[in-house]
Amino acid sequence: MTDNNKTQSDTTHFGYEQVKTEEKASRVADVFHSVAAKYDIMNDIMSGGIHRIWKRFTIEVSGVRTGHKVLDIAGGTGDLTKKFSRIVGETGQVVLADINASMLNVGRDKLIDQGVAGNVLFTQADAQHLPFPDNTFDCISIAFGLRNVTDKDLAIRSMLRVLKPGGRLLILEFTQPDNPLVQKTYDAYSFKILPIMGKLIANDAESYRYLAESIRMHPDKDTLKGMLDDAGFSLSKYHLFTGGIVALHTAIKP
């Protein structure tokens, strides 16, 4: 399947804006450089703290155990990494990867301050070209990161490559609710309230406008499931949360 976020071979979307494909990564990077310092507090305020429960559910269905190797892509400020680190223990390893140096620095400082160290590695890496050998990880998670990736098919294939056979992929991402009432409320919240909150708290309305737009441009849940199947994953399925505004896709490498 061709990644549906590419409208032509040399352009792609950045929110509702069309930009050159090679520009998207740097534009996304600018957004996250801008919001990195206030990322956690904004997540808590925007979601009312529910993002912690979405992430907890993700951990609970991960199948990760002591001694496992886990890759947390777009791990940002390290919410999933912290929990995975506790589960895999001293004999396991968690790699927190993020393409954005600012987010990675915030995550690294936060985790070290919380005493999460020893079995965590920090890597600045592009999800489309993961710098790891084939069949390395027992589990890969990417929470609220896939929609910012320029070529999602390429990233999914890259994840499939570095997963061990039997390993599990977890994609936690915003999606479009099916219920028209929820959709309308969600749109009003995303396009009217969210940028104001971004302006007040992070002094950056534009980045949070991009957030709302990028969710609308992200492949819907069934399309993403199809992309996983086409890439070669098996047993793919998704869970919908909070009225269908968030989906957790899970799939196994055969």
Partner: peptide, 13 residues
């Protein structure tokens, strides 16, 4: 292939 998991989310909470 799909489940609405808000109930399960309550248990997670």
């Amino acid at each position: 292939t799909t489940t609405s998991s808000d109930g399960a989310l309550m248990v997670s909470a």
